[in-house]
């Protein structure tokens, strides 16, 4: 029983109904890397001579992205934003996974502390804010990612958003006809004054596909959802899209790809002339208002931005890659995942 790999005689580990493609572990890992490169090339996301900063959260998508970009030969460094979420040791454990991969790849990881940058960690900021936790946290993370990429001299910022993320966001934006967001929803946002180029090379992969890539490459990652996102609307919308996918394979890919092919440009054209950027009067970063959304949000919750607090984590040799597949297969939190610590 079970599917056979379409490319070799081995047993398949996944059948992707939207592609009508069954692959074994070896062929899948190669296919995944080729598809990543295809997305990068087709959308002209990243050149070989450019420095890319990968925003890593400790989850499967971002860690897989850092891994595959390194495998493909790109000059990729990691950025971990320490949100200071102490429930179940969430942030500390996430950071450990990011550091573990830094060691495995032998690449530097930059760690920015939210509490040391704005005076308070995410839980306290959320308590004092009337915004939803994900909305506030997303705003802070986007600001930090962009600012650090600019200050660090990176050409490109890459995030691990996958097809499920993009399709769920698109569904939400369409349900509420968020025209401004629809104009900016894209796997690539080109650089302009004060904004680094942002890319999402995984926009064609489902969450299941990125999880499988992590598993097969022995990339240990945090499986728990963020304690603040358990009831998030995005997760609900992803469930609905997966129900549609079960009945009509390929729905998510068509929904998002056809939006990119036929609709996004129309929204972009309508929005473009309306937005003129200037410098934020507090932090000097680009904004459409006098004071940027980040500074307004931080001020409202009683925080003070004192500049990015960054620690550079230098990797050290640790953990043989031949053992790590088994480690990731057995369990998150396996002792093998805890061997790498700050020097």
């Amino acid at each position: 029983m079970g599917y056979k790999c379409k490319l070799c005689p081995s047993k398949a580990v996944i059948y992707m109904r939207q592609h009508r493609l069954a692959l074994c572990s070896g062929c899948y890992v190669q296919w995944f890397a080729k598809q990543t490169q295809r997305s990068i090339s087709e959308m002209r996301m990243l050149r070989r001579d450019e420095r890319v900063l990968v925003a890593v959260s400790g989850g499967k998508d971002s860690l897989s992205l850092w891994y595959v970009l390194s495998e493909l030969g790109y000059d990729a460094e990691g950025l971990y934003i320490d949100l200071g979420i102490s429930d179940l040791g969430y942030s500390e454990r996430s950071k450990t996974y990011a550091m573990h991969l830094a060691d495995k790849l032998m690449r530097p990881l930059h760690i920015v502390s939210v509490s040391k940058s704005v005076g308070k960690a995410i839980p306290e900021l959320v308590r004092r804010s009337d915004r939803s936790p994900c909305s506030l946290c997303g705003l802070i993370k986007r600001y930090i990612m962009n600012r650090f990429a600019i200050e660090g001299g990176f050409d490109v910022l890459a995030t691990g958003h996958n097809l499920d993320d993009e399709a769920a966001t698109l569904l939400s934006n369409v349900l509420h006809w968020q025209v401004g967001y629809l104009a900016r929803q894209s796997p690539i946002l080109m650089e302009r004054d004060g904004f680094v180029r942002r890319i999402k090379p995984f926009y064609r992969f489902t969450e299941k596909e990125t999880a499988l890539y992590a598993l097969l490459n022995g990339i240990a990652y945090i499986e728990d959802e963020c304690p603040y996102s358990v009831d998030a609307t995005t997760i609900f919308l992803k469930g609905i899209l997966n129900q549609l996918e079960e009945r009509m394979p390929g729905t998510k890919l068509q929904f998002y790809n056809n939006f990119l092919a036929h609709a996004r440009e129309l929204f972009e054209r309508e929005q473009a002339p309306k937005v003129q950027l200037r410098q934020c009067s507090i932090c000097s970063m680009p904004t459409a208002e006098c004071v940027c959304a980040f500074c307004r949000a931080i001020e409202r919750v009683g925080g003070t931005f004192v500049g990015l607090n960054v620690v550079r984590y230098e990797p050290k040799q640790c953990g043989a890659s031949s053992q790590s597949t088994k480690a990731a297969m057995t369990a998150e939190g396996d002792d093998n995942g805890e061997q790498c610590r700050l020097a």
Binding site: V13, Y15, N242
Partner: peptide, 20 residues
């Protein structure tokens, strides 16, 4: 659980949906 969002592993081997 949705097969679209889950992986099933037996003895370090990832299984497809029609595996017995």
């Amino acid at each position: 659980l949705s097969p679209e969002s889950t992986l099933v592993v037996r003895d370090n081997e990832v299984l497809t949906e029609d595996e017995l």
